[in-house]
Design a protein around this nucleic acid. Structure first.
Lengths: 349, 349
DNA sequence: ACCAAGAATGATTGCGCTATCATTTTTTGG
DNA sequence: CCAAAAAATGATAGCGCAATCATTCTTGGT
């Protein structure tokens, strides 16, 4: 079999190779190692089935040939892609970055890779993304939020793939859920600020669906306290410092007077704070400011910004854990995990 | 062949389906449409080869069956995965977020998906990631920076996959490059600040490799002006406002006096600015502050932060374009694209 | 009406891997 | 030292799709 021998020799040196170099496959490695392809496959995927000496032979051959497994082929044959997909609205929003990072880190630690898609807050786009994602046969999917197109839900259900929804709470998730209650946060903020004696509220608020929930909670409680609908200025996502400044300008120019501005995110709060300082408004003496998200800067501005802390990274990590448990067939303690939140009182209130 | 008929019937209605529902394949769609599988494949991938009536029949059958293509199988057969992988150091660093977003958007617009990996600034980790990534047969790879483990370079070269390095410049990229000169930025900052009359420089600097290049440029020019090595405080990544405040504290406590603090990022600059204000130091009267990156807040702090603008999103978009051109066999105008930079003079200098 | 040229569709095969079952080798206990 | 059990390795087949080449159907020109 000179043919085979010749090939074997070519394994290492690449002299007179044809223009299109066929890539190294399991078979090549097997030939070099003097084993069957399936044994090589096992050495790489279930080494506990083989004796150490065999594994060493394989490792050597892999080294020698520079073999890189083809996960498309592997996934096709095994029905396991070792891929997890995540959809977040956007990355500009620093909130999601930590979740994605936590998710990515945790998945990587368990041999999974992350396919990231950005929906831009559009359920229609999300729906398309889900189709595209399912094409890759992911072992799990992480979604942001709980409101999805009916189509999305249906596709995910019939694909029979583990799904984790995040960043919100509902008793009826598609599958699993890691989040917290925006409604409760709104309520908590309202009680807290009311308790501190603030009465004339203004809102600088992002136009996204979860922010709307927080707002609903806030207004419900304010209403209970007999405080009417607060004046508000809506801003588009992503919320920035500049939009926060603009927000306070608009609110003040409207002629109303305020003793507290509640913002849907820390970036907006920082903007409101900046604008207040520019105008010589004492914070919190004349005006209190409340943020949300407890981003890294909130504790270190002067004055520091009161906010609501969310363990954003934990959401990613727990989402990964939930998926990993489901994928590996381990029992899941709870389908729904509430990571909670914590109101952080700082100097702006 | 009753067996076959039974299957056909099951295609649409899912009554008495076995517990493990075999997923819908091209074959199923073909059967429903009364066409051959390959024709269905063409209807989905090269519709221009078929007559509209046929495509309509296929579309109908797809609708009816809820067919989702299997890209693992498709990729294996066609050698095209429609997947592009990117490695960035981290997402916390707002700098990379825009690039990733631009990259993701542009790729999505062309039917490609983004596999995102985080290297945490470690070449060793990057090397592992590259192996893992190559396993998925991506059609292209985007790397951050130009310094990679020798192993990484070798693997990428032998995998024969289009590669774009980003965020830096070199005459000898692995393949393609979209970036800018950090050295030049450092030099430009030095000339600019020197021109404004500043002489006593302090640095608050992140400990990453591209920041080091900017610093080298800065120090080279300062040296030409006869200014000795500037006092510096190094901070770990990710750089934050808090680290910036700390940085100024440390520098001032060292006893030296400064008339300008140069920071390796806007977040640090914002921190330095905050700390200066706390201490009653007039900016820029007593102390100038220079940032880098021109993040969204830089223009809107008070005083606004002078910075260096990088078109971060363009890096992502151009990287995507370069890959797409290469993948689709279009001629590439230039292997190396310098997106440049722009020093933005604002109030802190 | 007929034929050539092109357009549309189909049959076969294999991408690289792993599930499954079969076989061989090693270990164990009496 | 042997049979039986267990461990290690191998042979076969097929995952779902698209490249390739083969065949059938349309056209339009005369």
């Amino acid at each position: 079999m000179p043919q085979a021998n010749k090939r074997l020799a070519q394994g290492q040196s690449s002299e007179n190779a044809p223009s299109v170099t066929r890539s190294i496959t399991l078979k090549d490695v097997a030939r070099v190692a003097g084993l069957s392809p399936i044994t090589v496959s096992r050495a790489l995927n279930s080494p506990q089935l083989l004796r150490p000496a065999t594994i060493a032979r394989v490792r050597e051959a892999v080294e020698l040939t520079g073999y890189i497994p083809n996960l498309l082929a592997g996934g096709l044959a095994s029905k396991r892609s070792r891929l997890v997909a995540a959809i977040v609205p956007q990355l500009f929003n620093a909130m999601f970055v930590e979740t994605v990072q936590g998710l990515g880190d945790q998945l990587a630690a368990h041999g999974y890779q992350l396919l990231l898609s950005l929906s831009g807050y559009s359920p229609a786009h999300e729906s398309e993304l889900v189709s595209a994602i399912l094409s890759r046969q992911p072992d799990g999917i992480v979604l942001t939020g709980i409101n999805h197109a009916a189509e999305t839900r249906k596709r995910l259900l019939s694909a029979n793939v583990p799904v984790v929804e995040t960043w919100d709470l509902t008793p009826t998730p598609i599958d699993m859920l890691v989040g917290f209650s925006h409604q409760k946060i709104g309520e908590t903020i309202a009680r807290y600020l009311h308790g501190k004696g603030y009465r004339r509220f203004g809102l600088v608020w992002a136009d996204d669906e979860r922010a709307a929930l927080r707002r609903a909670g806030l207004e419900t409680v304010l209403n209970e306290y007999g405080i009417g609908k607060a004046a508000s200025h809506m801003v588009p996502t992503p919320a920035t410092l500049a939009l926060g400044r603009k927000g306070l300008q608009v609110l003040l120019d409207s002629g109303s007077s305020f003793d507290a501005i509640v913002c849907s995110s820390d970036a907006l709060a920082q903007g409101v704070l900046t604008e207040a300082q520019v105008r010589g408004i004492k914070v919190p003496g004349q005006l209190a400011i409340m943020g949300f998200g407890d981003l890294d800067f909130a504790a270190h501005t002067v004055p520091s910004i009161s906010s609501v802390h969310i363990d954003k990274r934990a959401i990613g990590i727990q989402a990964a854990n939930a998926l990993l448990a489901r994928i590996e067939g381990r029992p899941l303690k709870q389908r729904i995990l509430d990571v909670g939140f914590e109101l952080i009182e700082r100097e702006t209130t």
